[in-house]
Design a binder for these strands. Sequence first.
DNA 1: GACAGTGAAATTTTT
DNA 2: TTTCACTGTC
Length: 760
Amino acid sequence: MDFIDITGIESSSIIAKPSRLYYDVPVMTASPALDQHLSLLNPEQLEAVQHNSSPLLILAGAGSGKTRVITTKIAWLIGAQGADPRSILAVTFTKKAANEMAGRARQMESRAEQCRIQTFHSFGARLLRFYPEDAGLSANFTVYDDDDTVTLVSKAVPKLNRQQAARFAHKISLAKDYCLDPDSPELAEIDSTLDFPAVYRAYQNRLRGTGNADFGDLIMLPVKLLEENDRVRTAMQRRYETILVDEYQDSNAAQFRLLKALAGPGAYICVVGDDDQSIYHFRGAEIQNMLSFEDAFPGALVIRLERNYRSVSPVLSLADAVVRRNQGRLGKTLRAERGKGKKPVLAFLPDQDEETAFCAEMIEQSHNKGVLYGDWAILYRTNAQSPGFETEFLRRKIPYRVVGSLKFYEREEIKDALSWLAFMANRRDEVAFRRIINKPARGIGEVTVEKIIHTAYSSSLSFIDACREFTGGSKKAAGGIGKFIGIFDTLAALLPPAKPPEDNGTPAVMEDGMRLSAFAERLVTESGLDEYHSARDEIAGTQRLANLQELANAATLYPLSTEGLLDFLDHIELDRGMELDTSENADTVTLITLHNTKGLEFPKVIITGLESGIFPRDGKSTEELEEERRLFYVGITRAKDELYLTACARRRIYGRTEFCDPSPFLYEIDRDLVSIIGNPPPDFAGSRGGTAPPDPEQQALLNQWPKGARLFHDDYGYGTVVSRSVNNGEVVIKVVFENGGEKHFMPKYQEAALLRIGDE
DNA sequence: GACAGTGAAATTTTT
DNA sequence: TTTCACTGTC
């Protein structure tokens, strides 16, 4: 049973084995099926697959078939090397990637089913599930997501408002990505204020009080467990003889230490990644893990996969021109196996409305010629850019889906129900308790809630017992607390008590009618959440009740027991990417942030909003600029056949129209790598033809606003004209203000706000 | 404890 | 522009 075999400790203790568990068979007895899979590989891929000695770093460029390499390698290790599938651990970052890898490996080699192929976090969660007390957690711990973390920070340090709490929460999670304790001096590198360690400590105390873990703990606690606990480390090192890591460029410092601790002396370690696609440094990913792999694992072999099977060559040439600008990279050059194709198009458009229209128009025209909507993807830097496209597509009846906007598990009603479920599993879960105690309203006010929580902490009671003990408070509050206890008791009676994990003689067999879904459904009605949310459905026309039903349906696969409940919550917490609209097969245009496109590909890609300040965003350090450039690179390399880039001269930002310069990235690329359409700004190399001489009206404006002219603007204060241009027939001046800001204006339309006050 | 009104702020986010 | 946190009123 999966739940019982949490870490594979049992199997490793059952099987007596030498230092490496390879069966006593000649090395090359590959099955015909395996030979077939091997024959599909190019020489570098084959070398990467048939390597099983020193540490191995596979530098896999975009579209170079890395998933194929990893899955074939798993099949080869089992089929040709005689490796015990249970001794193979493969970790990825997303559930989706893990599922895909597991599925494809199993297709090639059925025994791969016994490999442990999962995300870093679910690996950590399972380890902790097995040794909760050693790690300082409660046996029934649940996992707090980022939102819960913010709540807990704001409660641990009441003087913080929610936004400040969110900032600290982010920093705390960053600290955990680096395995830093509240006492670590290195905390100052994240935030040098004196407050930070204190806030972190307060949060940590509160978190440990609940017995729960946050995402960071799922890596950091296993690291400590492995580093400090010989018994656990030995068991795990004996178990895993092969460790494979995908998307290694996005691993953080804690994950690196996890790998180091997990890899025993005889272990074979193989990591796959692309330093040019590292785009998550802002949340702790350390490209350094990759750049210094050869130092960390002496004797390592590096294999480059540079043959790209995805994109036509003009797309790859552009991608290379972009990423070549970066300094800290291992360096590789993709070669297009697919050969020639259409040159990327760079469109300069007047404003964002023209941008959406341009995209919609192209998509409609291609659709009329038989191209699927699903072939198209629109990429943007920030989620705030999607509404424009949505409005336009709705108007034109172009079907679309927005990837990663509002996630299923982040919906209010789902979080409500999940909090109830979490609280049923762990009665010390403060965050869950706060969420459910007075929702729907039972007349229990904030003051009463705080008193109960205080009682719980000061008398070491669970929150439900604290409710039972609680006497003070109004009559209304007492009634509400009574109701709450009643709901809890009703539900608790339905849930069989937890069995200690050692008692694994009878794995949680699923009996008919004993599903967790029945419990979840009952919970939704008993708690009053169904009434509460269906009432709001009627007002707002939302789907909350249906969502709650869907959540209950998802619980069908789990047995009605505390173990089943914890298992269910783990799976949900560690697979938050799930979207409500799972109609993946529908023929729709994809609207998606650049970050979310990692690992995806589309025949036709439009990267929008290529303007300075939007992409890259303002105020980036050199290092951050490199990451933004990699993000651009990731976007470009998603395109198989056609790539379009759009840049607007004007954009409404926060309701105000701003003039935009083209993205600096556009100035970095050779003009003959793209076909330029629309009206590029005059300073853009590659703009066609000479600029038309200004007409009298334009000349008058140019005379009125010479370079060096001093002016006053109603909103921005004093400034100086630093340059002027004629763009789309309009005079535009660039002004540097005394407050340090830079703005473009069309003086023709700014007569009211702009006042000329003299020369410099 | 619910609600309307005000003011300040505004990335990206695998788990 | 939109969103969300905070404030004051009923």
